[in-house]
Each structure stands twice: as structure tokens, then as C-alpha cells.
Write a protein that binds this DNA or RNA. Sequence first.
DNA 1: AAAAAGACTTACCAAAAGGTAAAAAATGAT
DNA 2: ATCATTTTTTACCTTTTGGTAAGTCTTTTT
Lengths: 220, 220
Amino acid sequence: MATVKTAKRTRQSINREELESRILRAAEVLFAEKGYSGSSMEAIAVAANISKQNLIYYFKNKELLYKRVLTEMLDVWIEKLSFLEKNGADHQDTPEVIIRRYVREKMQLSRLYPNGSKVFAHEIISGAPMLKEYLVSHLKPQFDRDVILVKTWIDEGLVENIDPEHLFFTIWAATQTYADFSVQMEVLLGKPRLEAEDFERAEIAVTDFVMRAIGAKTKE
Amino acid sequence: MATVKTAKRTRQSINREELESRILRAAEVLFAEKGYSGSSMEAIAVAANISKQNLIYYFKNKELLYKRVLTEMLDVWIEKLSFLEKNGADHQDTPEVIIRRYVREKMQLSRLYPNGSKVFAHEIISGAPMLKEYLVSHLKPQFDRDVILVKTWIDEGLVENIDPEHLFFTIWAATQTYADFSVQMEVLLGKPRLEAEDFERAEIAVTDFVMRAIGAKTKE
DNA sequence: AAAAAGACTTACCAAAAGGTAAAAAATGAT
DNA sequence: ATCATTTTTTACCTTTTGGTAAGTCTTTTT
């Protein structure tokens, strides 16, 4: 029989998926706040509203769970770390258009996935024990391509003679900081939470900085 | 007898100080790499080359030790987070001079105290449980003053109409990232370690970005 | 309806972690 | 030299943690 082997969507398998993603969300929140070692399986189970043993049934150990949280995150993340990814970018676009979109999307990631960003940050700060491989195999090639692209822009006189590598480092830092260091900003801005409005101002500010840096005119 | 009560510098007290700072350095390294929960007293003791019990004799619990690491750090740190601190700054200086010095000093902190920076970063990302008070009482007042200063610069037409709060956030992020995310950069730059040369390029790049952002002419 | 597979619980357990208490050793003051 | 103080070690102890093993209950398949 030449039927396509599709996983059957039984009640069980649906529940399983739902529960798995509930666990992953709970784990993400905890890993973001307490780091890997600071988050116990017990605490994650409680947050996901199941028993510890049941959690272990779904993720048979902590490291595995952590890696799943990381990779779920990276699927969304890394893709948007590139200038030239599927999502609408185009070689025909001007540097200004591309960079504006890039900053906007990075900023959106910080707003929509602050916990993922924090887990990632903890991981990198800790020396990327679980992620180094991934950075080498996935992020670096993308980075190299993007650096080359910026260099051609410079050669063609489309942007100022900036340092491409450090341009990326600065954009990443300036955007991710709104997820990772949000607590510090809340204190300094005297607000209980960063709101949509703050992210809008942040996006405008960062975009303006970058536009001036690359030598594009700011929108009036 | 009107002799000034100076702590006697016996062999013991000298050793004590030396050992204490050895412990603090060892703890800083571990907290930077593994975070608070990930660093056991045992591991810190081993790193400091003493027994766990002896470590506990010097710092009677882990939280205390952690707080000492944090505050040692902050003494150096927070001071330099301000535009107008003792160290040579002057109201007579132009914005360009002040900001250049500021970026340079922030960059130096990242180069000289990467571990302190990482401990700080872990702490803030985790919601600053031990540090929030301090941020409110020490950092915020300084920040408010600096923001006002930038606003007067804007009013006087000395710099472009930038967003002062977010200018600071961007500068902090862009400089601290060279401590906190050094592993990522090492991967992307294909180097085993960031070297003096990388920090120099970074400093130039970041300084240029900021100079363009505030509307100062870049040195030729 | 029975068998098989999957989901969840109960009962444990060994190792690690953060300590406490008290004795022993080293150093300092008189 | 002796007594007091400071430093270091030895001996435990409790709680937490990540996990195993095995059984029960539920859903799916046949």
C-alpha cells in the first residue's frame, strides 16, 4: 500500500505535544531566570504542573530538556541573525532597507522571546558548553557570508567604511540587551515593566544609531 | 594616647588579606562561568586551593561570598558608568571628548575584568535578585544626572537630537558584549582568544559608531 | 474484548551540596 | 614560656537533586 506514513493524530499524541510544549515553555522561563544549574527538575515540573517523575518520562534527563529548549529557540533565532534569509530579504534591496528590517526583526525577537534570549545569553556567557559546536557549524558560515556582503557594500560605496564584524557585534548587543538586561532598564527608566512603547523608542533609537553609523540619511 | 588605631599588619593579617582576595578571585571565575547555583563551595575552595571548611571559615556562607564578589566588582564598575566621575572628567570637556573617554574606559573594563562583567551579567539577566536595591540607590541617580547632561548637550546643539537613555543602553551593551559574549566572537572571528588587537579594533569601531550617532566628526 | 502500547505514580536511592560543631594546630601577645 | 586568639582540620548531618525501577491506570490497536 502506497499510503504516506503520517503520524496519526490520536488524542494521546495531541496531548503529548501540548504537554511537551508546556514543559518547554516552563523550562525556558526557569532556565532564563535561574540558569541551568539553578533550575531543578522538580521546580520545572511544578511550573509545568506535572509530577517530577512524569517530567522525566517526557525528557529523560535535564541536559536533554535544556538542549531542546536551546534548539527550539535557535530555530527561530539564528535564521533571523542573517541579513539574507528567506523571509523577504532580497539582494535588490538597498543596505538601508536591509539593515532597517534586520534591526526591527532582532528587536522583535527581544520583545517576543525574552526568555529564549536570556537562556541563550546565560549559555554564551558560560562559555557555550552545549552550543559551541552549533555556533561553529551554523552561525559562523552565515556570519562570514554577511560580512562579505557588507564588504561589497563598502567597496561599492553604498555604506561608510565601517568595520563589518564589529557592526554585527554592536547590532546584536544593542538589540539583545532589551531582552537580557530588561531589569536594569526597568530600574533606570523607573518602570515596573518595559512596554510596547519602550520597545518602539528603543527600535527607533537603535535604528537611528546604526543608520548614522553606516552613513545613511535618517528618515525625516 | 592619641595614637591612630591602625590595624596591625601581622603575618596573620597579611595572609588573611591575601587569602581572602585569592578566594574572591577564584569565586569570581567560577561564578562567571557557572553562575551562582552552578558554583559549589567545594569547587570554589578547590580553585582557591584550600579546604571547603576553611573557605567557610572565611566566608560563612555562599550568598555572602557571592555578594562580596559582586560589590568588589561594582566598586570598580559603577563609578566608570558615569560620564562625570572623579577620574579626570570635566564639565569643560566637549561631548566628543567625554564620550570618547567613556567608551574607552568601558571597553577597558571589559578587557580587564571579563569575569566580573560576566558575574554582573548573569545577575542582571536573572532579575538582579541581589542587586536590584543597589541599582536603584546607586546607579539610577547617576544615570538620571547623565541623561540630563546629554539633554543639555542636545539643547545647546552640541550633539544631534538622540535619545539619551537609549544612547546609554546601546553604549553599555556594545562595550560589555566584548566581555560577556567573547566566546561567540571567538568562534565567529575564528580565534582561540580575543586579543589586544581585537579590543583595539572593537574600541575604534564602537567609538566611531557612537561618534557618528551623536553627530561628531570622526577623526581622520 | 483482549492484548499492546503509552502515560503516569509510587517507592526508592546514591551523590552532591551547604552547612554546624568541636578539636587540633599555628600564631600572637604578655 | 604561657595563655589567648586565630586558622585549619576532622567528623558529621540534613536537605536537595537527578535519577532508576517497577507497578498501575488509560488509551489505542487488533
